[in-house]
């Protein structure tokens, strides 16, 4: 087994995902199975192949920085789980 339960817990922490014990077990065996399949890519020699992160030959797309009116504040705040005035409310972040 390449991935251990400890690895699963570490990756879950990185991804900010609370997993149940059952999920940890399941993902451990499934991720191993999936990553074993991915090993297939190592059949290919790619030392001199450039990576493609994007199919379009796009560089930075520039535009003028213009102020535009924004009127959706109320509708955006309607979706907030918790709010105060025009702010999103969360737990205290600093001690």
């Amino acid at each position: 087994m390449k991935i251990t339960k400890k690895d699963v817990e570490y990756v879950a922490k990185l991804a900010r995902l609370a997993l149940t014990e059952e999920e940890k077990e399941k993902f451990c065996s499934q991720l191993n199975q999936i990553l074993l399949y991915m090993e297939k890519l190592n059949e290919l020699e790619t030392k001199d192949v450039p990576p493609t992160s994007h199919v379009l030959a796009l560089k930075n797309v520039w535009r003028e920085d213009e102020v535009k009116p924004f009127t959706h504040t109320k509708e955006i705040l309607k979706n907030a789980p918790e709010k105060e005035g025009n702010y999103f409310k969360v737990k205290k972040v600093i001690e």
């Binding site: 990185l14 609370a18 999920e23 990553l35």
Partner: peptide, 22 residues
């Protein structure tokens, strides 16, 4: 954060987030 995401996402989404994060 962790609880929200653990409870809010279904199993396939969690599996892919785990795979991608790894």
């Amino acid at each position: 954060y962790e609880r929200t995401r653990g409870e809010g996402f279904g199993v396939e989404v969690k599996r892919r987030i785990m795979l991608g994060t790894y």
